[in-house]
Structure formats: C-alpha cells, structure tokens
Simulated assay, not measured.
Amino acid sequence: MAVELNHIIVSAKDAKASATFLADILGLEVGDKWGPFYPLVVSNGVTLDYIDTTADIQAQHCAFLVTDEEFDASFERIKAAGIPYWADPHKETPNEINHLFGGRGVYFDDPDGHVMEIITAPYA
C-alpha cells in the first residue's frame, strides 16, 4: 500500500474564520462542519481539518503546490487583502516572492500565525 497524507488537524482560535481565510486565498471552499472540524480539502484529497482551541497555538507550516495561474490568482488576493508576505520562511525578505527550483513561491501567515506557502515548483 502506498502511504499518503490524508488529513492534518490545524488548531485555531476561530476555526471557521481561519479555514475561510485560507480557502479565500487559495480559491477553495470550506466544507460543511464535521464534528468539531471545518474541513478544507485540496485537490489531491488531503484535508486540513480546522478545530477551535483556547490553548496556545504552536505555529505549523503548510506548503501548497499550485499552477502558475493559481499562484497569480492567490498572490493577487494576498496583495489585495493587504496581507504581509515574504520570499522566505524566516521573514527576512518582505514584499518579495522567491524563484526557487525554477518556480515561484511566497510565504504568508494565517490569522493564528501558521506559516502558509504557495509554490509553483516542488522543492524536491
């Protein structure tokens, strides 16, 4: 059997708002609430299951491989919303994108401090 990532639980102070934030950037829709989760399914079937928490949140990093057209649309949404962005995960290069591995990439934070990344070429 091939091993595939099926889902990841993403803690948030407001799960619905955080799921909606990322869905809006990526041009996706949040699924119906399932138990305590607000699911966001990406095209390869992996689900980000957002859950409310009152505990301190440990920031996670999620990278999304997108087409050039999806990158352009998502990046425009980031800029239009006034969301800070960086070319690197350490936030040393603000207001720029990177061009690693012949593609383009950008990092931005979600409302809970999770570091999100969109890339057009895999880093492997």
Rank of each mutant, 00 (worst) to 15 (best):
I57A: 14
W86F: 10
F21E: 06
D24C: 10
E29H: 07
Y85N: 06
I78L: 06
F64I: 02
A73H: 04
P36L: 07
P84C: 01
I25N: 04
I51D: 02
Y38D: 12
V42P: 02
F75D: 00
V66T: 09
Y50Q: 12
I83R: 01
A63G: 09
D49S: 14
D88E: 07
A63I: 01
P39K: 00
I57M: 09
E76N: 12
F71L: 07
P84D: 01
L48G: 10
L26Q: 15
V41M: 15
G45R: 03
K79W: 05
A23E: 06
D52F: 11
G27H: 08
G82A: 11
G82K: 10
K91V: 00
G45W: 02
K79V: 13
Y50P: 12
K91Q: 06
D88S: 01
A23V: 08
G82W: 08
K91H: 08
I57E: 12
D24G: 10
D32A: 12
A63W: 00
T54V: 14
S43K: 11
I51N: 01
G35S: 07
S43P: 06
S43T: 12
G35Q: 11
Y38H: 15
D32Y: 06
S43Y: 09
D88H: 03
I25P: 04
G31L: 03
D32C: 09
D49M: 13
L65W: 15
V41H: 12
G35V: 07
G31E: 05
R77E: 01
W34P: 00
E92D: 10
V46W: 08
Y38W: 15
D49I: 10
G45V: 03
E92S: 14
T54Q: 09
W86R: 02
L40Q: 14
P36Q: 07
Y38R: 13
I25F: 02
A73K: 04
D52W: 13
S43N: 14
V46S: 13
E69S: 05
H61T: 10
C62F: 07
A23N: 07
D32R: 12
G82N: 11
G35N: 07
K79H: 03
T47D: 13
V66M: 07
D68T: 11
V46L: 14
K79A: 08
A80N: 09
Y85A: 05
W34K: 09
S43D: 12
G31P: 01
T47F: 08
E69K: 08
L48I: 06
L28I: 13
F37Q: 07
K79G: 06
D49Y: 11
L40S: 13
G27Y: 12
D56G: 13
L26V: 15
F64Y: 09
F64T: 04
S43W: 12
A80D: 09
I57P: 14
Q60V: 00
